[in-house]
Structure formats: structure tokens, C-alpha cells
């Protein structure tokens, strides 16, 4: 298994994006992505064009849509769902998410704490969190300046509150890519662990929770229990594990690059443990958790300490 650079939230001229499907694919390839999901607002009209362009360019394109409802946005990836966005209401959204997942699709809560009406109406999640808690993924970071500001903090807090309740929801980033962005503002990547970069393998990787989000550092981490090693998203036989972490700079990251690492933190339902971290040096931390354990990487970027990366969780025990 290796980690593939993916962008799971993109738009084209078939909704309100500025690039055609072909231009988006070309740009994604230039920017070093292994895969993108095309998630135009309430339409899949551009998907086949993007898939075809991706086949030509050597870029995997996952079929998707963004349910752009009045009360919140959800990206749905896989192309199997038969849910019509206009039928979704606060009363039935849980059922629609379940329906899409049963069909084999992946559902993510998109930019849930972004400003909604009247700036970006529908962007803020007005759904009761319980009714959307059945998603696979949560955009812990989104759009520009993903690890900064109030919305980023609130999204991270809300995601952890869901993990605290025993839910197994993977962390993803959503660029919400609308423009060409030749000089990109601060942005992040979602990396997905998979056997290869084919659509089916990436879908399996995302569903399994083998993801991390980052502003410029790679995070190679595993949990070791006895002789066995596990990737994030795995359910460990026990919460007593050694977490091994090694981080390196992502050389072609196009925004402000992290200049040094400071520490790794393990966030668990039992609390936070931290250890100093340097580029290229493996650290091992003992942990004991009852529900989940994520890894957060802190370092210096833009001349200040920043949260640089968050992994999805290792789990143990029964799911809620």
C-alpha cells in the first residue's frame, strides 16, 4: 500500500467552476495529483468527459456530485447513488446518506462550518449533526487557508466530537476547486492509502479510512500491536499500541512550505500525548485508547507554529 495524492472536491463549468472537465483534469495532472473526484453542484453532466480526459492524461477521476442543498453540502463519490438532490430535506437527509452508502458511494460532509447565508448560502451545515453523522468522511479542512481561522477550528472540534461518540468518520480535505489557481492560496492535500491508484482501489482506501490531510508534509504512520501493523481506519484488537510516525516535506507542495517540525500529538478519547518530531526521523509513541487515536503533526510554517497534518483515526472496540 502507498498513499496517493487526491482531491475529492472539485467543480467545472458544468456548475459554477471556471475550468471545463478537460481543463480541470489537465490542471490536476500538472499539480501532481494521482486522482480527483469531480463533484459538480447537483449534476454529473461533466463526469464522463472528465473520466475520459483522465484516461488520456493518466489521472484517475472518481465519479461524484455535490448535493448542494439549502441546509448543507455533501459530496457523494462513486457514481452509483440514485438520490435526487432536490428530494433531500432536513427530515430525510439521514436516510438519503444511508441510501447512497448502501449503493456503494462515499458521502462526505463538506465545509460544514463555513459561512452560509447570505455569503455562501447552503455552505454552512444547518442539518442537525445527528442527522448527518452517518457520513463516511468529514471535511476537517476545506478550501483556502484550510488549517487557519475559526471555521477550521470549529470543524476540527466537531469532527473530534463525533469520534468521541464512537463514530468512525475519516478526515478529508476539500479544496472545493473552482478556479485555475495558477498561484494557489494556502491549500491542503488529502492522501489516500490504497493498493494502486485505480478508482476501485482508491474507493476502498477512502472507505477504509486510510487518509490524512496535510499542508505540505507526508505522514507515514502505523499502529503496531504485537507483531501486527495497522494503517489508519483499522480496528485494532486493543487500544494499547505503539504508533510509529515518520514525516517528510512534500517537495512539490505549491503553497508556503513548512520549515521544520515541532511535535507529533496523539489525540485519543483518553487525552493527548505528544513527542518531539523532526523531518525524516521515526518516532514511536505508546498509546492506550478505548475508541480512537489520531495523529496530528505540528511544525513551523509562515513563521508560526501551525497544525500541519491530521490523520484519520485508528479505532478499537465496538462501533456506535
Amino acid at each position: 500500500m502507498r498513499y496517493y495524492r487526491c482531491e475529492l472536491h472539485t467543480h467545472t463549468t458544468l456548475s459554477d467552476g471556471k475550468m471545463t472537465p478537460e481543463e480541470l483534469v489537465e490542471r490536476a495532472k500538472e499539480c501532481g495529483y494521482d486522482a480527483i473526484a469531480l463533484t459538480d453542484h447537483n449534476t454529473t453532466a461533466g463526469v464522463e468527459r472528465a473520466v475520459k480526459a483522465g484516461e488520456k492524461a493518466g489521472l484517475t477521476v472518481l465519479r461524484g456530485i455535490e448535493w448542494t442543498t439549502f441546509w448543507g453540502h455533501l459530496t457523494v463519490i462513486g457514481g452509483s447513488s440514485d438520490v435526487l438532490w432536490r428530494d433531500i430535506t432536513p427530515e430525510n437527509v439521514a436516510e438519503k446518506i444511508k441510501r447512497a452508502r448502501e449503493k456503494g458511494d462515499i458521502v462526505a460532509l463538506a465545509h460544514p462550518r463555513r459561512m452560509g447565508y447570505p455569503v455562501c448560502s447552503g455552505c454552512h451545515c444547518d442539518y442537525d449533526i445527528e442527522s448527518v453523522a452517518g457520513v463516511n468522511n468529514y471535511e476537517v479542512w476545506s478550501h483556502y487557508y484550510p488549517n487557519e481561522g475559526v471555521a477550521a477550528r470549529q470543524q476540527r472540534e466537531q469532527w473530534y466530537s463525533l469520534l468521541d461518540r464512537g463514530l468512525r468518520i475519516a478526515a478529508v480535505y476539500g479544496y472545493d476547486w473552482h478556479n485555475r489557481d495558477d498561484i494557489p492560496p494556502s491549500y491542503a492535500y488529502t492522501y489516500v492509502g490504497a493498493e494502486n491508484a485505480d478508482a476501485d482501489a482508491l474507493m476502498r482506501g477512502i472507505k477504509s479510512g486510510a487518509t490524512f490531510i496535510t499542508v505540505g508534509v507526508s505522514v507515514d504512520c502505523k499502529a503496531v500491536v504485537g507483531e501486527k501493523e495497522y494503517v489508519t481506519g483499522s480496528v485494532l484488537p486493543t487500544g494499547e499500541a505503539d504508533i510509529e510516525i515518520i514525516c517528510n516535506p512534500i517537495k512539490d507542495y505549491r503553497s508556503d512550505k513548512p520549515t521544520r517540525l515541532i511535535r507529533a500529538e496523539l489525540h485519543t478519547d483518553k487525552g493527548v500525548v505528544s513527542t518531539p518530531l523532526e523531518f525524516g526521523k521515526k518516532v514511536k509513541i505508546k498509546t492506550a485508547f478505548a475508541k480512537y487515536c489520531t495523529v496530528e503533526v505540528y511544525g513551523e510554517r509562515k513563521r508560526e507554529e501551525q497544525l500541519l497534518a491530521i490523520t484519520s483515526a485508528f479505532y478499537t472496540g465496538g462501533e456506535r
Partner: peptide, 9 residues
């Protein structure tokens, strides 16, 4: 904007 922002966030 201010009213909506405080209500939402």
C-alpha cells in the same frame, strides 16, 4: 452577514 454569522458560528 453579521447576524447570520453569529447565528451560524
Amino acid at each position: 452577514i453579521e447576524e447570520s454569522m453569529l447565528k451560524q458560528a
